[in-house]
């Protein structure tokens, strides 16, 4: 898609706002519709758009595959780790009261933010991984066939 100038300029403008919107959805999920799952998907869309309009090499230079794989695993770890922390603090698994024993409501807030962050990271990682996996195969037919 080298020759589509308008497409490339508009994409450059859009990617920034897509990412900021993803972060907004991620951290504002307590107050408005949104949360980790949606934010993860939107974030992944930001990277995928870059890959579609420019090229796979470009996007992999920004967001290398090894980092994506690590992030996907890190998200699950963050989620499960939150549960383990509350276990060690003497509460039951995933009981967020443990994070702030004197103020259970605050503990819930911290817990929800951590867990949503874990979900978001995993979903981003997995979606981008899947995209990389599909596009890094050499296509059987070329672009002109479309």
């Amino acid at each position: 898609m080298r020759h589509h100038l308008i497409l490339r300029v508009v994409t450059k403008l859009l990617i920034g706002s897509i990412m900021i919107f993803a972060l907004y959805v991620q951290f504002h999920g307590d107050y408005s519709p949104g949360g980790g799952f949606q934010a993860g998907v939107i974030m992944a869309v930001g990277f995928i758009i870059y890959g579609v309009v420019f090229s796979l090499e470009d996007v992999q230079r920004v967001f290398p595959p090894w980092l994506v794989h690590k992030l996907a695993a890190l998200g699950v770890l963050l989620y499960a780790g939150t549960g383990i922390v509350s276990l060690f603090l003497g509460y039951s698994y995933l009981d967020y009261t443990a994070l702030s024993p004197h103020h259970p409501v605050h503990g819930q807030h911290y817990g929800i933010i951590l867990v949503e962050l874990g979900v978001g990271i995993t979903v981003t990682g997995v979606m981008v991984t899947i995209y990389y996996a599909f596009t890094s195969r050499t296509p059987i037919m070329d672009d002109e066939a479309w």
Partner: peptide, 17 residues
């Protein structure tokens, strides 16, 4: 359903793979 949608797209991509 929220979680099911995201899981659904992940499994769909598994099928496509």
């Amino acid at each position: 359903i929220l979680t099911a949608i995201v899981v659904g797209v992940a499994t769909t991509s598994l099928g496509l793979a």
